[in-house]
Simulated scan of single mutants.
Amino acid sequence: MTYRIALVCLGNICRSPIAHVVLDDRLARAGLDDRVEVSSSGTGGWHVGEPMDRRAAAVLRDAGYDPSRHRARTFSADWFAENDLVLAMDRSNLADIVDQAPAAGLREGHVRMFRAFDPEARDDDEVPDPWYGGADGFRDVLAMVERTTDGLVDRLPELLRDQL
């Protein structure tokens, strides 16, 4: 049985693709890549089919990751049935996701903030959008994503147990 995780930001060209690439890497390192599948999307459709932002790709490449396979997609209500866990990068994305929830409602814990797994997250549980900033913003997002992803992978055995 495959556990499916969806990562969602606004345009699916910066934050969620960075998280997707890093989570795929961490799952492979943990030997969980055969049990967990990752996808990413954006709540807006402006960039559908495009690769990730060149600055996001550069920060990933510089850190030793391969950003080349990403193509932007749009989140839709179908993703609720297709994924066991949907993680939003910020509160606006979370609201957009919840607005598309099926009439029957959401399962408890089905939709969460991505940084719910960040051991350093306190009052601010959002991943800031680096789009309007410089390279430092993308590096900061990568560090936040790596830390959060490590926390998520640490919790996956529990999440996988709960799925059974």
Rank of each mutant, 00 (worst) to 15 (best):
V36E: 01
H20W: 12
A63K: 03
V22C: 07
V48M: 10
A95F: 07
D140K: 15
E50M: 12
V145D: 00
R115L: 12
E108R: 15
G109C: 11
D136N: 11
M144N: 00
D123N: 09
E146D: 11
C14E: 03
T149N: 05
R139S: 10
F114W: 09
R71N: 01
Y3G: 11
D78C: 04
P130L: 08
V141M: 04
A57C: 05
Q100T: 04
D99H: 11
D118V: 02
M113R: 15
D33N: 13
D84W: 10
A121R: 03
V38A: 08
L27D: 00
D33T: 01
M89H: 08
P51D: 02
E50D: 12
I97N: 02
V145T: 09
E108Y: 06
G45E: 01
D90T: 07
P102Q: 06
R15N: 04
S92K: 14
G109R: 06
W79A: 11
G137F: 03
C9T: 07
A81F: 07
A81V: 02
V127F: 06
G151I: 07
V98R: 14
M144S: 13
Q163M: 13
A57P: 03
P130K: 00
S40T: 10
V59P: 01
R35A: 15
M144Y: 00
A30D: 09
D124H: 14
A88K: 07
D34H: 13
L159N: 03
R15W: 07
A135M: 14
L7E: 00
A56L: 06
C14T: 06
R55D: 04
R91W: 12
D150A: 15
E108I: 10
V141A: 07
M52A: 12
R61F: 01
V86S: 04
D162A: 15
R161F: 13
E120D: 14
D118Q: 02
A77D: 10
R29G: 00
L23Q: 02
A116R: 14
A95V: 14
A81C: 04
A58W: 04
H47G: 04
E120N: 10
R112H: 06
R147D: 02
I97L: 14
A101T: 06
A116G: 15
Y132E: 05
Y3S: 12
L87T: 00
V22G: 05
E120K: 12
P130E: 00
A135E: 15
A135C: 00
S39R: 15
G151D: 12
L94P: 02
A63H: 04
T43G: 01
T43F: 07
R71S: 13
A30N: 08
D34L: 06
P51R: 02
T149F: 08
P157Q: 04
V21T: 13
R4A: 12
Y65V: 03
R161L: 15
R112I: 04
W131P: 00
A58R: 15
T148G: 10
V59K: 01
D125Q: 14
F80H: 08
S41L: 08
R115M: 15
R91D: 10
